[in-house]
Design a protein around this nucleic acid. Structure first.
Length: 253
DNA sequence: AGCACA
């Protein structure tokens, strides 16, 4: 495949970046048996199209009910961040990642090019004579999205009425995996560097402290969640703190 | 994995 001599995708872009810099589209609502070739054909004539990456996710037919009509409508929006995956020069026009292979049956390979998140070079070297550079992809029972890592949450919510692991954004954070000697003071010291920080409450649950940290805005809580996730406090003795959105907002104080 | 206060 002739590819442009330049890269469209800057690497290592963060999710919070300026939306004007997004040059990746997130496509959902694809049928279970969609083929990467079909997606590629959908966009190949469009100016500036570089490549597509098709990912079969873990959600699928099992118990996911959505309106059959709505389910057949393609939904396209700006991705939350740009695709980082780089094509290998010798590979095909699209990338397939299949995460839904363990529970189901057979094949696990991507057909068209490089694989998932960590892709060391093939130790065997130049074995690219691999004749299977073709377009026949495994068909798996699963929901199908393009590049779901970069998806906008709303897009997934449209597709699934599934159990969402209590991950609704909230302006209060729940902080766990704190050391038994963690003090309100040391935690407050860290949190108060962030804008919008309101109040911290520490409770002891089964001997181990957990904390609730309240912020003015969800966005401010989100920033703290991502930036302080897994970070260590002086009192930490079992790894970094684990931060989630609280299930409910902190009450009046 | 563990989510309280009012």
């Amino acid at each position: 495949m002739a590819r442009p001599p330049y890269e469209f995708d800057p690497y290592f872009l963060q999710p919070d970046q300026d939306r004007n810099l997004i040059n990746t589209l997130f496509v959902s609502g694809l049928p279970d048996d969609v083929k990467a070739r079909e997606i590629h054909n959908l966009f190949r004539r469009r100016a500036g199209f570089d490549y597509c990456q098709l990912k079969y996710t873990g959600r699928g037919n099992q118990g996911v009910k959505f309106d059959p009509q709505a389910g057949s409508v393609l939904h396209i929006e700006l991705a939350r961040s740009n695709s980082r995956r780089k094509q290998k020069p010798g590979s095909g026009p699209y990338v397939v990642i299949d995460n839904r292979t363990k529970a189901s049956a057979n094949n696990t390979q991507e057909t068209s090019s490089d694989n998932g998140d960590s892709d060391p070079e093939e130790p065997s070297g130049a074995d690219n004579a691999d004749s299977s550079n073709n377009d026949e992809l495994q068909t798996l029972k699963s929901d199908t999205v393009l590049d779901p890592e970069h998806s906008v949450p709303a897009a997934n919510e449209q597709l699934e009425r599934t159990v969402n692991e209590g991950a609704q954004p909230c302006s209060t954070l729940f902080i766990a995996n704190l050391g038994p000697n963690c003090t309100e003071y040391e935690l407050k010291e860290v949190l108060s560097k962030y804008p919008g920080f309101n109040l911290l409450k520490i409770r002891v649950k089964g001997g181990m402290p957990v904390a609730f940290a309240d912020f003015e805005q969800i966005e401010q809580a989100t920033k703290v969640l991502t930036e302080l996730q897994s970070s260590l406090l002086p009192s930490s003795d079992r790894g970094g703190m684990h931060i989630e959105y609280a299930k409910s907002r902190m009450r009046k104080h």
